[in-house]
């Protein structure tokens, strides 16, 4: 048995002990929840199963951390692309009220072109964010607007759509690249 496989086995066992992610949602799992992409088309997370996925939650009116996170993600994607390493990147809004597919599309035009932007029916989005334990709270501002506080670490999902790691903001894009490469190596 290769060290990588042995390691994966340990993690699998650990995940079972820690209430497996799949228990959080019944039926076909989070991959089956209908969402809407930036072109207005139906999209389910199962569409990216089989790939390593970088998943970020945010919203387009987010003033500080989201643009930084998105630019870090873009930098990582550029490097991965130049190395020919396949990875999917997804941005899911926590603010469906304002983030229509068109708004998300305009926002994404400033970042890496392969990033998929998703919104959806509020209930469906809730199911996704609950699954990934992303907390989010709508916080009115004095200007009569609101922000959506949310967990802003980057998820690294394995080919089965399960979280492998959470990358906190502040770690450089080179770390994301290394992480993706390591996961792909251990998967194959």
């Amino acid at each position: 048995m290769s060290p990588g496989l042995r390691h994966s086995g340990c993690v699998l066992l650990l995940c079972c002990l820690l209430q497996p992610w799949t228990m959080a949602i019944a039926g076909e799992g989070v991959g089956a929840i209908p969402l809407i992409d930036q072109d207005g088309a139906d999209f389910r997370l199962s569409a990216v199963h089989g790939s390593v996925v970088l998943l970020l939650f945010g919203f387009t009116h987010c003033p500080h951390i989201c643009p930084l996170e998105m630019s870090r993600l873009t930098a990582a994607l550029e490097t991965l692309e130049s190395r020919g390493q396949e990875v999917k990147a997804i941005f899911i809004t926590v603010d469906p009220q304002r983030d229509s597919p068109a708004v998300i599309k305009s926002y994404l035009s400033h970042f890496h072109p392969t990033i998929i932007g998703l919104t959806g029916m509020p209930g469906n989005l809730d199911a996704v964010t609950d699954y990934y334990r992303v907390k989010r709270v709508q916080a009115p501002t004095t200007q009569g607007s609101y922000l959506v506080d949310h967990g802003n670490s980057l998820y690294l999902l394995n080919a089965q759509g399960e979280p492998e790691a959470l990358v906190p903001p502040g770690l450089p894009s080179s770390h994301i690249v290394n992480l993706v490469a390591a996961l792909q190596e251990h998967t194959h």
Binding site: D149, H150, P168, P169, G170
Partner: peptide, 17 residues
């Protein structure tokens, strides 16, 4: 994990990294 101040938790994460 929802700390969004660039000079807060992300700074610590950066230095620790």
């Amino acid at each position: 994990s929802s700390c969004s101040d660039v000079n807060g938790c992300p700074l610590t994460a950066h230095v620790f990294y």
